[in-house]
């Protein structure tokens, strides 16, 4: 995010809190517990002689990073940015979903259907919720059905209009996913809308589309369609179909994305 900078007026590193998405990467890096006065003195001396000690790039010499307790709405930044956070008390149900990763067991996307994973802010740019809302409102106008078990859907105040909670709109996060499902026929209209709206929002969008393969493990529908639409799908996540129901206690219809460790 480029949130950490040296404030030359006080000669100290600071974090730009408006840009910081609370991802926690800085606080997790390796550290030493050296005396800050000693470290600053050595650095000042080195500066005078125009040389620079080249330490390990991922070691904080003074263990300077401390994770703050965050109030709402800022806590939402952490929920959507820190991959290690657990968020049982926030009321927001997870940051990721199972998508087609468990489709062999959960049957989320069937033959003839297409799932979309529209991810904002990634890689490395970040996004504010009002940018996401611009997209969800445009998609809602197409009459799409937003995936119910998705964290962004949980933040919607009106799913039919795609509007998000107002007090979150200016919060910045590392990334978030909007998920929906349509028929194959609707693919061109959805992708066209996503491309068009992405031009109006100041972030990056990563796009994923999924489908169920046929009995022979082939995809005779979506792959050729994407090809026709000019998309280059070089990489994929492939569910190999080895999952099955093994639970003896829980019955059917109890599928949830609320794993005790978040779904990644």
């Amino acid at each position: 995010m480029g949130a950490i900078y040296v404030d030359s007026s006080v000669n100290r590193a600071k974090i730009n809190l408006d840009e910081c998405v609370e991802c926690g990467a800085c606080s997790r890096m390796s550290n030493e517990t050296l005396n800050p006065h000693l470290v600053r003195s050595v650095r000042s001396l080195a500066k005078i002689f125009r040389f620079r000690f080249e330490p390990e790039p991922d070691v904080c010499p003074t263990s300077a990073f401390v994770i703050d307790d965050l109030p709402y709405p800022r806590i939402v930044r952490r929920i959507f940015s820190d991959p290690l956070i657990e968020h049982t008390s926030t009321g927001i149900k997870g940051r990721g979903t199972e998508e087609v990763k468990t489709n062999d067991v959960a049957h989320r996307v069937s033959v003839g259907e297409v799932g979309y994973v529209i991810e904002f802010g990634r890689p490395g740019v970040g996004v504010r919720f009002h940018h996401i809302q611009t997209m969800t409102m445009a998609l809602a106008k197409l009459g799409v059905h937003f995936e119910g078990k998705n964290p962004i859907t949980h933040l919607m105040v009106d799913r039919s209009r795609g509007t998000l909670k107002e007090d979150l709109l200016h919060e910045k996060i590392l990334s978030a996913i909007v998920e929906l499902k349509t028929t194959t026929e609707e693919v061109p209209a959805i992708l066209e809308t996503v491309e068009k709206v992405s031009k109006t929002i100041d972030t990056v969008v990563a796009l994923g589309v999924s489908t169920r393969c046929d009995q022979t493990g082939n995809d005779p529908v979506l792959a050729p369609l994407l090809d026709d639409l000019g998309y280059d799908s070089e990489r994929a996540k492939t569910n190999l179909g080895l999952g099955r129901v093994t639970n003896t206690r829980n019955g059917e219809g109890n599928i949830s994305d609320e794993h005790s460790a978040s779904v990644r």
């Binding site: 998508e99 087609v100 489709n103 062999d104 996307v109 799932g115 994973v117 992708l191 990563a206 796009l207 994923g208 589309v209 999924s210 489908t211 169920r212 393969c213 009995q215 022979t216 493990g217 082939n218 995809d219 979506l222 792959a223 994407l226 998309y231 280059d232 799908s233 070089e234 990489r235 994929a236 996540k237 492939t238 569910n239 190999l240 179909g241």
Partner: peptide
């Protein structure tokens, strides 16, 4: 056989 595929666009 592959069960499902999610393509990166």
């Amino acid at each position: 056989h592959r069960h499902s595929v999610e393509y990166s666009l």
